[in-house]
Computed example of a mutant assay.
Amino acid sequence: MKTYEVTVERDGRWWMVAVPELDGLTQARRLDEVEQMAREYIAVTTDVPLSRVAVEVSGIAADGQDLLEAKTLVDGLRRRAKDLEAMIAELTREVASSLTDASVPVRDVSNVLGISHQRVSQLVQAAAQSDGDSTKVIRQSRQEFAHDLVIQLADGRAVRLVEVTGPKKNRQSKEPVQQGSGPSVRKAPHPRPAKRPASRSASQKQSV
């Protein structure tokens, strides 16, 4: 089976489907019809069975915008959001459990976490049935999300979606700062050497 690369571009009420390898062009009403229309065109043009034709859409454009790139970005952000939701749920459960174990009133835990006190009780019960470690979860959260989420647009503009405070990664990195390609990274100052205790004088040693 041979795979052909196709590109798609909106033209009026139609999606124009180009097959560069065959220098051919067909059309589809909707995006979900593109693959089938392209395969049928290729099969007829090359005189091969439809079952032996596969296509790969390498680009989708409309009104000057790359829709395939936008789709990839949206799908990636959705996956990231699911990861964040899972981490938030785990962190909330473990923090609720650790605070109640430290005799912090349930209503105060509710205030800290922004959830109802009934929900705090549920989370504490759930945490009691797991072997979670709130310290580990907090450390993992800081390491994983101690950065800014920035989208660099094709025209050079940067859109900041999320700003997360916390320790930055690679603070000791000596790589130069890239201008205009995202959030700036500052070099951490060199640590000062620890002061050694002053040596005792000869007279002090004799008096000991």
Score class of each variant (00 low, 15 high):
Q140F: 12
V177G: 09
R13P: 00
H147W: 02
D83Y: 06
Y41H: 14
R192I: 04
A126V: 08
A62G: 00
V185A: 09
T45F: 10
I42A: 02
K169T: 07
Q65D: 10
L67D: 06
Q118D: 06
Q152A: 13
S199P: 15
E85N: 13
L84A: 11
V74H: 11
D75M: 08
P176A: 01
S116F: 06
S207Q: 14
V159W: 13
V112N: 03
Q179R: 11
T92Q: 07
R13C: 04
Q143C: 08
S130D: 10
S141Y: 11
A154R: 15
T100P: 00
H147D: 12
A198H: 12
L73M: 07
A96F: 04
V137F: 01
D131N: 15
T46C: 09
A61I: 15
M1V: 07
R171E: 15
S201H: 04
A127Y: 00
P183D: 05
S98A: 14
R157M: 04
I42T: 05
V48Q: 13
R139H: 12
T100A: 10
P105G: 05
G24S: 15
V159S: 09
M37T: 06
A188M: 08
E33Y: 03
V57Y: 05
S130I: 00
A202T: 08
R29T: 02
A188G: 04
K136D: 15
G132K: 02
L113P: 02
A38W: 10
G114K: 06
L68I: 08
N111P: 00
G180A: 05
A38R: 02
L31F: 06
L123F: 09
T7L: 03
A188P: 01
Q129I: 06
Q172Y: 15
Q122L: 05
E175A: 14
P176D: 06
V44T: 13
L161Q: 05
V74S: 05
E40I: 04
M37Q: 14
D155A: 04
T165N: 13
T46V: 15
R196N: 11
Q125N: 13
E35R: 09
M16R: 11
E56H: 11
V55M: 01
T165E: 14
R79G: 04
R93D: 05
P193T: 05
Q122N: 07
L50F: 12
K195E: 12
V74M: 09
E175F: 08
M16K: 09
S181I: 07
G180Q: 08
E40Y: 01
E56D: 09
Q65P: 00
K136W: 02
S121G: 11
I115P: 07
Q118G: 08
V104D: 04
G12Q: 03
R52G: 07
V162L: 13
A96V: 03
I60P: 00
L84Q: 04
R142W: 02
D133F: 02
R119K: 11
G64I: 06
W14Y: 07
R157N: 13
H117Q: 12
A54H: 11
R119E: 10
L123H: 07
G166W: 03
Y41N: 05
R78P: 00
E144I: 00
V34C: 00
V53N: 04
K136I: 08
W15M: 00
P183A: 10
V19D: 01
E5S: 14
M1L: 11
P191M: 07
Y4R: 00
